[in-house]
Design a protein around this nucleic acid. Sequence first.
DNA 1: TACTGTGTTTAGTAATTACTAAACGTTCTA
DNA 2: TAGAACGTTTAGTAATTACTAAACACAGTA
Lengths: 176, 176
Amino acid sequence: MPTKLPQLKQDFTEGLSQISRFWGFPKGMGAIFAVLYLSPTPLPLDEIVSQTGLTKGAVSTEVRTLARMGLVHRSSKLGDRKDYYEAESDFFKSIRSILKERQNSEFDRAIRSVRETLEKLEAGTVSGDEAEVEFVYQRVKALQEFFNAIDSLSSAVIKLESLGLGNVQKILSILK
Amino acid sequence: MPTKLPQLKQDFTEGLSQISRFWGFPKGMGAIFAVLYLSPTPLPLDEIVSQTGLTKGAVSTEVRTLARMGLVHRSSKLGDRKDYYEAESDFFKSIRSILKERQNSEFDRAIRSVRETLEKLEAGTVSGDEAEVEFVYQRVKALQEFFNAIDSLSSAVIKLESLGLGNVQKILSILK
DNA sequence: TACTGTGTTTAGTAATTACTAAACGTTCTA
DNA sequence: TAGAACGTTTAGTAATTACTAAACACAGTA
């Protein structure tokens, strides 16, 4: 027997919810994105509310963080007070803006704290068993270098015009 | 005034805890890793307990998941019943094993559900407005392709002998 | 066999996070 | 100015997750 389109959409939505949760985002966020992603036209807030079963408040805040991440876009029609939302369908573009978002976040603050640790060690202002201080220094330095590599990578990705399948292929060929 | 080594270690540990939490892991996990990472010698469980302030139970379970991820290694000394743990210091190696770990997880199950959605659409067994079905098909297909790209990338990384700074540089030069 | 030193499991608690319901602020319309 | 149609904020609740305390299992030793 044939699957009805609304049913299919709902299954898909549930799948994306789980993926969302897996990556540490609220599952409602995945659901909202899924609904928008499968809609041929931008949707107003109440439509998202009715299709996800979440409340106005929840949708309002989560759609905002989705927008900040560049995963959805907000627009409005002239002579219509409603806001309309649509999903970004270029995922590589989304990745870039998520990375960009992360750069000013809590994450960077933590990374900066590692850098500070390293600076203290380099300034020679740390007292303790000499061999151990040296060991700790080497370790912290290695971690810092790792972060730097990740950072260069993501900066590069952010600056890219397009990270299409072509580029991914090229990368793969290097890594072989 | 000089910083004392134990103080430095503790600051570092707090930093890593936050990073851990940021990526959706328990902060205790980050703390455990930090303690091991800064220790010149493998540590037994009680040592981790006393240095992190967590309980035996917590350390026992979290150190196990760290080991599954390949971020720490368990070893034992002859004539000593204790287990000893040490941190993996090659982060690229860790990334590989984390990716490997993820392949058999909940995440893959969710991705599979997207693939099933796609298969139903391709089999033509979905009923509904024809234009909309076609639209939905295109979208789901695009998402699937994105997942495939990510998947190839991570498989490639998993198979690598080494993803050192050299390779990262090469990648960066492509992406410029 | 009991006892000690290990790590693990379990059942419950604390802390965090996602979400709801409802009040609120604004803007437009009558 | 009142009321309606929006989106936002807030205060509280539900659900989830991280962790604790304590019982447990097992191995080695007296």
